[in-house]
Design a protein around this nucleic acid. Structure first.
Length: 222
DNA sequence: GTCCAGGGCCTAC
DNA sequence: GTAGGCCATGGA
């Protein structure tokens, strides 16, 4: 029994409804969160964001100019704070010095905008896609660890270890070119994974149960 | 105490 | 081109 990515989206949407992602109020907050959440549980990231917000540092110029030791202290709860500080500075430096960066990322062909973000130290494919999709509303699919695990369990085994670009292509070629759909799909994958996975053997009531059970005898659903 | 989380860079083969 | 080490906190 095979399936299309769109079917999985439809099952998840029916089960969980619209997610209204990203969990951040402004594009700048989304950008900062995208870096801080690298290989990190969101709960820890939200503490760091709250710290920055509480000290009025959730703006480009304020955060870029803030003393390193102050920023390090505030973002510490998100972990990897030394590397994340350098990556944040690199990204903020880009927006600070690159004239018309915001407009460019909004309007340039998406692959060009993506290449520009990827050239910044500390911005890899997932972070670039998160920024483009959620802060700029651009058409690009976000592939993360949840996405790989879920689709591997559903039967697309190759997705688990395949190069990022190959997985991204699989989704973008299998889905209609719809920013709102990409936005919701990634959010739904995260919501579903947190709700159902790795804690229970083969969850009862899993909205993907048909696909999952048909594909695997695996002990874990995602 | 152990494991792991919404990655990406650097270094060795 | 790719496998392995590294970065660090907080919750389960």
């Amino acid at each position: 029994m095979s399936f299309e990515p769109l079917e999985i989206f439809q099952h998840l949407f029916a089960a969980y409804g619209p997610q209204h992602w990203w969990p951040g109020e402004t594009p700048f907050e989304i950008i900062v969160g995208a870096v801080l959440t690298q290989n990190t549980a969101w709960n820890n990231v939200s503490r760091a964001i709250a710290n920055l917000k509480g000290e009025g540092l959730l703006s480009l110029e304020a955060l870029y100019a803030a003393p390193p030791e102050r920023v390090l202290r505030l973002i510490a709860p998100s972990g990897f704070y030394n590397v994340k500080y350098r990556r944040l500075q690199a990204l903020l430096g880009y927006f600070h010095s690159r004239q018309g960066a915001w407009q460019y990322l909004h309007t340039a062909p998406v692959e060009e905008a993506r290449a520009e973000l990827l050239s910044i130290h500390g911005i890899g494919p997932e972070t670039a896609d998160s920024i483009l999709l959620y802060a700029f509303g651009r058409l690009t699919f976000v592939v993360d660890a949840y996405t790989r695990r879920l689709f591997a369990r559903l039967g697309e085994d190759w997705v688990e270890k395949a190069p990022y670009e190959a997985v991204r292509r699989y989704f973008m070629e299998g889905l209609p070119p719809d920013v709102a759909l990409y936005n919701e799909f990634h959010a739904l994958i995260v919501t579903h994974s947190k709700a159902h996975c790795r804690k229970r053997p083969h969850c009862a009531g899993c909205p993907l149960g048909q696909h999952c059970a048909a594909q695997r005898t695996a002990a874990l659903c995602v």
